[in-house]
Design a protein around this nucleic acid. Sequence first.
DNA 1: GCTTATTATCAACTTTATGTTGATAATCGG
DNA 2: CCGATTATCAACATAAAGTTGATAATAAGC
Lengths: 302, 302
Amino acid sequence: MDRIDAMRAFVTVVNEGTFTRAADRLEMSPQLVSKYVSQLEQHLGVRLLNRTTRKLHLTEAGTRYHQRAEQVLTDIDDLENQLGDLQTEARGLLRISAPVSFAIRHMAPLLTEFQKAHPAVDIDLQLNDRKVDIIEEGFDIALRIGHLKSSSLIARRIAPVRLVLCASPDYLKQHGTPQRPEDLEHHRYLRYSYMDQDATGQVHRWLQSSARQAGGDMVSNNGDVLVEAAIAGAGIALQPTFIAGAAIRDGKLQVILPDHEPESMALYAVFAHRQLLASKVRSFIDFLDGYFGEPPYWDRFE
Amino acid sequence: MDRIDAMRAFVTVVNEGTFTRAADRLEMSPQLVSKYVSQLEQHLGVRLLNRTTRKLHLTEAGTRYHQRAEQVLTDIDDLENQLGDLQTEARGLLRISAPVSFAIRHMAPLLTEFQKAHPAVDIDLQLNDRKVDIIEEGFDIALRIGHLKSSSLIARRIAPVRLVLCASPDYLKQHGTPQRPEDLEHHRYLRYSYMDQDATGQVHRWLQSSARQAGGDMVSNNGDVLVEAAIAGAGIALQPTFIAGAAIRDGKLQVILPDHEPESMALYAVFAHRQLLASKVRSFIDFLDGYFGEPPYWDRFE
DNA sequence: GCTTATTATCAACTTTATGTTGATAATCGG
DNA sequence: CCGATTATCAACATAAAGTTGATAATAAGC
């Protein structure tokens, strides 16, 4: 016996006045209503209704139980409806973790548009380049760049992330433009701290090679700084196009060794579960999907 | 799935922090707790908990659901306990003290009917005309006749008790029918031992007057004996109608001085006041109330 | 006053759900 | 990296749910 259904049966019988009408309203058989009420009485150890075949009379216990049970039932209805709304209409606080440089350049218009489409959703955007534990830290979604390792999380690919080698025209005029990966040995490298250590490809190999002899390298955990340094002529940077693209299009940077471009990575949206996903999360993922285009607008610099 | 149990499972998991501890507390298997929570989520269409094998985290929906569900559960507990303590089905031994003559004539059908309505109640009926101490002697209810003195006990008026003066037609033919209270002076009085000493009214005054000169009075502590004596022509009795009524209706007794009938007394049910009246007691009092009618059936002799 | 219609409940039965057990995958501490 | 702990899955025997048809009891209609 589902006690809630039993309570509902009893309350309906009292309100409707007969078992049969209550059964109609509840869309079940009168026998079942009778059974529910009996079981409820047995469970409580109290007779709630004095029934003759023709008329029903509440006992004192029944009277007391009725009013409070009705209250409890509407509480439960409210409770479930509240969650129903939560599920169908996107609402609530959406907590997002995103990479710093990407978010600074490309998240603002997206979020603005998203909030326009879903006004009931509040957004908390935390910028962070380390790999957050979204469950532990209570995030709904994390945006991540890279090649994903397997995990219990679900990842949706949002956009490709191209990495390009680039430097300022002035720098290249002064130090020469590398024609082969080996030429990188003699250049200054503006290095990103979190760059995948296991990256493959000739370019990576030369850039991380201990054979390099240039000196004057620069390291940062922020791509913007490195790109700005490259524009100022500090050396060669290996950075994603979503950072460097605009500078390249404006002629402030020049792409080097385009034929040796490293394997493309991707931007992923990572979240906890596939089933019973809060609609604020689902809506946001759907919104992300395809938002940047393929190729994304920041890759249109050539 | 019992939704109440499912809610309880979820709330307990949240409060205890792990499925296993919740299962311990609820005295069921962790698998079942897991199943309940899953089914609750499915029923609601929302994910309530983000679970890794090691830690649990409430979702936003889970947070909202938790606090309100906890409230609902305590409401239900209160509701059921209230009924459990207060209104359990009438059962147990009901100890009743009652006046001898009244009980012999009028209690049997009442008790039979009551037991039919409350089969779980056993009855111990003690007949006694002295004033028992119901608390000291462990009675649940005492029936008493008279004008009640104040006490710490609760008294419920059950029926009026009329007293009538009566004698047999033969006696009256022989000794004459009194027309005024003073005429009682010369008649034989069949006296009830426990008759209130402080009774007022002309009839009482004359009956108890030391001026009486008839001689041959009879005293008993049992009204039935006195009424039988009156029928046999032994004298005049002052007895309640619930004893004499039938004889009067049958013409074996005749009412004397009907215009001087003493002030009516009453039958009371007396019981100890408690906050939580055992339902067997409450049921019996409710049952008594109105059972004999107003006027009671034994008064229909005229 | 007898019949008919309506009512609640009972009984038997089929279908569905429940709660157990043992097994599995995932994670954290050492 | 391993053992301990955790949540969950899968399969099974058991219990309950909910159906249908039957029965007893009452109120209204003729």
